[in-house]
């Protein structure tokens, strides 16, 4: 039985702003999920997570989130991650980013 590889990204909150960020292929952090590096190898994902966790001067609470491949980069599997990507519902956030 062949199993599809579990696709994952490393995500966290930025230390200073608290905003959701994603680990990119260049090892930086982006506020856009679409920029995230997608891991299909669980060991590599764990290694990247360990590295991210060690950089606690930049981000807080790093973890692996499952994603699926989309046209414009990785897309969330769970709706919680969709909220982290998109921010509060438009109606709930009547006071947009200034």
């Amino acid at each position: 039985m062949s199993r599809k590889p579990q696709l994952q990204v490393v995500t966290a909150n930025a230390l200073i702003s608290g905003h959701s960020v994603w680990l990119t292929a260049s090892g930086g952090w982006s506020p856009r999920m679409g920029d995230a590096r997608v891991f299909d190898d669980p060991q590599q994902a764990q290694a990247a997570l360990a590295h991210a966790t060690a950089r606690s001067d930049i981000v807080v609470g790093a973890y692996l989130a499952p994603v699926r491949a989309g046209v414009a980069g990785p897309e969330p599997v769970h709706f919680r991650e969709a909220f982290r990507r998109d921010g509060p519902s438009p109606a709930a956030n009547a006071h947009p980013r200034s």
Partner: peptide, 21 residues
Amino acid sequence: SEDEFRPLRLMNGLYLQLHAY
């Protein structure tokens, strides 16, 4: 570290939520 800081910020009412503090 964050583990050391977290209880200190919580004592001062500062949480980390989904999108921000």
